[in-house]
């Protein structure tokens, strides 16, 4: 007897679906891609046009306004180091991608998180998708991005948004669900509508948790932007990628260190904001 278990056509189905979607929508997505790519170019170009001796003090001043003088000083030192090793342009490129992707992640992720917290059904729908998004190896997102958005920064953004969104969704939902029951009851007892309860009680109390999610999203975005150098996103990841291909350990380590510096600066700034959100 010859028993064969039919193979589940996961790969075939995925390909077929992608082909179908590419046929139907690639026109639209390519158009989007061109527009976004233009923006990214303008933004990156514009920032690079600013002389370093103006850009670094201005950045330090902004950081000082948001956080502490100490953090501003250390950030300025870090930026200076990046400029010194000729990685300033790459840093700007990476930062622009990270911030754009994060902004998109938050715009999509926070409302989904709120919906997931308020409706049990929404939570049951979102939760497995989040599990999938977080456990899928990040490289895999790069593959379908290419047919839609082509090689380059826009695909990198797309993959980064998907990869970095889950913490924002999860922690927004968690923060809202963690509102102490007694406080929710009090809000109900005084006759709050669901929206009043959300905006006057649950979201303000969830803010520190939401900020922790935003912090994680930024960190994930940075790591993904680095990885998407493989599809031509450039930036600091591009420097690492080139060092790998040429087996230049020194250049690779230098670019890696630059990524660490950017990561530390972004992390400390968001953590500081998260602490400030903790009002009580």
């Amino acid at each position: 007897m010859d028993w064969t278990i039919p193979k589940l056509p996961v790969a075939d189905v995925t390909n077929a679906a992608l082909d179908y979607l590419t046929d139907r929508f690639s026109g639209v997505t390519r158009a989007i891609s061109h527009t976004v790519a233009a923006w990214i170019d303008v933004l990156t170009g514009g920032l690079n046009a600013v002389p370093v001796w103006i850009a670094i003090p201005v950045l330090a001043l902004i950081i000082w306004r948001i956080t502490t003088p100490k953090l501003a000083l250390l950030s300025a030192l870090g930026f200076f180091l990046l400029w010194d090793v000729d990685l300033w342009r790459a840093t700007i490129q990476t930062l622009v991608l990270v911030l754009l992707s994060t902004a998109a992640s938050l715009t999509i992720g926070i409302p989904i998180g709120i919906a997931a917290a308020l409706s049990r059904r929404a939570w049951h729908g979102v939760s497995p998708v989040l599990d999938l998004m977080q456990t899928m190896p990040s490289f895999v997102y790069l593959i379908p991005a290419i047919p839609f958005f082509g090689l380059g920064a826009v695909s990198a953004c797309f993959a980064t948004i998907i990869f970095s969104m889950p913490p924002t969704i999860r922690l927004t939902a968690l923060g809202i669900l963690q509102t102490p029951g007694a406080l929710v009851e009090a809000a109900d007892a005084f006759g709050s509508s669901p929206m009043q309860k959300l905006f006057k009680l649950q979201l303000p109390l969830a803010l520190p948790t939401v900020m922790a999610g935003i912090n994680q999203t930024i960190m994930l975005a940075l790591s993904m932007v680095v990885i998407s150098a493989m599809i031509g996103a450039g930036g600091l990841g591009g420097e690492v990628w080139r060092a790998i291909q040429r087996l230049e350990a020194g250049d690779g380590f230098q670019a890696g260190l630059a990524i660490v510096i950017v990561a530390v600066i972004l992390d400390r700034i968001t953590q500081h904001i998260a602490r400030q959100a903790q009002v009580h």
């Binding site: 102490p180 406080l183 009090a186 007892a189 005084f190 006759g191 303000p204 109390l205 009002v279 009580h280």
Partner: peptide, 20 residues
């Protein structure tokens, strides 16, 4: 909801003040 707004005041064991 309208009735609760104008009809009742409630005081809780653990105070239930909004910390923010």
């Amino acid at each position: 909801r309208d009735f609760r707004r104008t009809g009742f005041g409630m005081v809780f064991q653990q105070f239930a003040l909004f910390p923010h």
